[in-house]
């Protein structure tokens, strides 16, 4: 896109090229008829995990993907991360097809996956070190981020001295420290108890809304939890049961900043009910292994 800026629009060849290559700037991620599958190592049989998925994500959107267990959410997220290749179609990021991991993307892993031989600060610094971005300014930023997620006091502690929630905070800080344009989160709070989970959601929203931490950034967040999805999302994508395809696309028009106490308000509950209904339909009724209705709805 950029290179067309420097050439004359009068040249017919260039004009042609320009019109075909310029996309609406607002579309940051383009998922274009994507299928992803695995070949079994034992039998060699190929099985789709994601089938013919198509949607776009605009710049600055916080998108939450929700779907039943095993439907292919992780598979899709890893394809966006560049860890898994797509078998059909294309995922584009700012117009360029994804070929592998890149510094503009960060992944918050489902399990914290910290390096046990590094203390908290050095775990966060690893992301900078790997991208040769380690300097006094980024070091300061790492410290600020750890402060922001409430880990100021344990920066010199080792992972085995931390609780699960603290580890997940480090995981989050490590992903944010490189100022990613696109933050990918795979059920980051899935293993936490309900209370810690609530605190962490709030912190993520805070970090997300913290002005100094970035411009218009994108997030792609995976969860099982309907309440969590509505609380965090600008937009919720409901995946069908395996192999995953897009079952519903719901915009969440709730104002920000969002606060934990809003979760019980009627607007939130309405959205939660709607997402839950879509989820039931998408997974083919209640007998498909879906969890019982989450707390927010049953009360």
């Amino acid at each position: 896109m950029e290179k067309t800026v420097f050439v004359s629009q009068d040249d017919p060849k260039v004009a042609n090229l320009t019109s075909s290559s310029v996309r609406p700037e607002a579309n940051y991620v383009e998922v274009d008829h994507v299928s992803i599958g695995y070949r079994s190592r034992k039998t060699g049989i190929y099985k789709d995990a994601v089938v013919d998925l198509s949607f776009d994500i605009r710049r600055g959107e916080f998108v939450v993907i929700i779907g039943t267990s095993g439907c292919g959410k992780t598979t899709f997220l890893e394809a966006v991360a560049g860890l898994t290749p797509v078998s059909k179609g294309q995922i584009r990021l700012g117009g360029k097809p994804i070929r592998g991991p890149g510094p503009e993307r960060s992944l918050v892993f489902q399990s914290p996956s910290l390096f046990p031989w590094r203390n908290v600060r050095d775990n966060v610094l690893f992301a900078l070190q790997a991208q040769h971005k380690l300097n006094s300014e980024t070091r300061q930023r790492a410290d600020d981020l750890l402060d922001l997620v409430g880990l100021k006091g344990v920066m010199d502690s080792f992972p085995h001295e931390l609780s699960g929630g603290m580890k997940q905070r480090v995981n989050l800080a490590r992903a944010l420290v490189t100022r990613p344009e696109l933050l990918l989160l795979d059920e980051p709070f899935g293993a936490l108890d309900a209370q810690t989970r609530g605190v962490m959601q709030h912190e993520l929203v805070n970090v997300w809304q913290a002005a100094d931490l970035g411009e218009a950034r994108n997030a792609l967040f995976i969860t099982h939890d309907v309440e969590e999805a509505v609380y965090l999302a600008d937009r919720i994508l409901v995946f069908s049961k395996a192999p995953a395809s897009l079952a519903a696309d719901i915009s969440i028009d709730l104002p920000r900043p969002r606060l934990p106490e809003h979760k019980r308000s009627s607007e939130y509950i309405l959205y939660q009910d709607r997402v839950l209904n879509e989820l039931y339909t998408a997974s083919g009724g209640a007998s498909s292994g879906l969890e019982p209705a989450p707390k927010g709805v049953s009360q």
Binding site: A81, L83, S111, S113, F115, Q129, A130, Q131, T178
Partner: peptide, 26 residues
């Protein structure tokens, strides 16, 4: 998991061997 973290952080080969593989294998 360590390998995935290294990949995701775009660690080069040298960084991977020195800062991930060596300490993990120590």
């Amino acid at each position: 998991d360590y390998l995935r973290v290294a990949k995701m952080c775009c660690a080069g080969r040298w960084t991977f061997y020195r800062s991930v593989l060596f300490p993990a294998t120590l």
